[in-house]
């Protein structure tokens, strides 16, 4: 469990990144912090592994104040995946994945063995083990980043816009993989993003932040869509999606979802009523976020 208690971050220049933030994140839960730039979301996440120390308030992990822990030891116990992967350019894929276990004193052979397993887990071709990061595609680099984050088998995984630098198709694929991984591994995940669709897809709960780290709304994607607390959340969630009325039209033998203005919002995936369990995108990735919107739309309100 991760707890934020009235944390505040003020920089020497007087800039206040986070005003007063409190949130509890349960073990094995994936929470997405979503907001525009300046919302303090990355700052908040970096307080967990003490890359940033709060000016006031405290952050605790399983009731232990992180301020009392050695930052280096703490960081080695928490997985961290960042945008553009942050891999060491002069180390091979395998060496990058084994970085943390080796720092923690795991024998090299053992660490490499586990790294190979992890490469398989995150869907990386084992032939890539001896490549350098620059020789990989953006999507492959991010997979290495995820594998590295998982290498020391941490309970907590921090993800800072990990899929922000890859193209939409690869991003969609990586998001799907992460969902699959999370079903298997059940880590406590804190996921920072500015993309509300990504937040809804990854997060069991989503915290929408206003500038200064003020929480606009916290809840499951369904709760937020069903009952946005105010106009800020409603507009953030996108095009008043919650209020959008959708209907189905038949085009060329397919069911196309069309909104009130007559714009196509997506293609209905399988008319067998599977929509409710969030599996829409699995069936037809090309349907894009529209189908996802629909999936949540169809939930009983």
């Amino acid at each position: 469990m991760i707890g934020f208690e009235n944390v505040r971050k003020e920089y020497p220049g007087g800039t206040v990144a986070v005003e007063d933030f409190s949130l509890e994140i349960a073990s094995h839960e994936a929470v997405a912090l979503v907001g525009t730039s300046g919302s303090g979301k990355t700052t908040l996440m970096r307080m967990i592994n003490r890359m940033v120390d709060p000016t006031a308030g405290r952050v605790h992990i399983d009731d232990e104040d992180v301020a009392a822990m050695d930052p280096v030891v703490l960081r080695r116990s928490i997985g961290y995946v960042m945008q553009a992967s942050g891999l060491l350019p002069h180390r091979t894929v395998l060496d990058n994945i084994t970085t943390v276990p080796v720092l923690r004193g795991t024998a090299k052979g053992e660490a490499r063995e586990r790294a190979r397993t992890l490469m398989d887990t995150v869907g990386l071709d084992p032939d890539l083990a001896d490549r350098y990061p620059a020789q990989l595609s953006g999507g492959q680099q991010q997979r290495v980043g995820v594998a590295r984050g998982l290498a020391a088998d941490p309970n907590i995984l921090l993800m800072d816009e990990p899929f922000g630098a890859v193209d939409p198709i690869v991003r969609d694929e990586l998001q799907g993989e992460l969902q699959r991984l999370q079903r298997e591994l059940r880590k406590t995940i804190v996921f920072v993003t500015h993309d509300i669709d990504e937040a809804f897809r990854i997060g069991d709960r989503v915290a929408i932040l206003r500038p200064g780290g003020r929480i606009a709304q916290v809840g499951t994607p369904q709760e937020i869509l069903a009952d946005p607390t105010d106009d800020f959340v409603a507009s953030f969630v996108g095009a008043d999606r919650g209020a959008r009325t959708l209907h189905v039209e038949h085009v060329d033998g397919r069911d196309v979802v069309v909104d009130a203005d007559g714009r196509a919002a997506g293609v209905l995936a399988g008319a067998d009523g599977r929509l409710g369990d969030g599996g829409a995108a699995d069936g037809d990735a090309a349907a894009g976020p529209g189908a996802e919107a629909l999936a949540t739309e169809e939930r009983p309100r």
Binding site: M51, V72, R76, M82, G86
Partner: peptide, 14 residues
Amino acid sequence: DPATVDAARAQGMT
């Protein structure tokens, strides 16, 4: 690259 150094620090390098 500052991002590489930041990542190394976040992994727990001294």
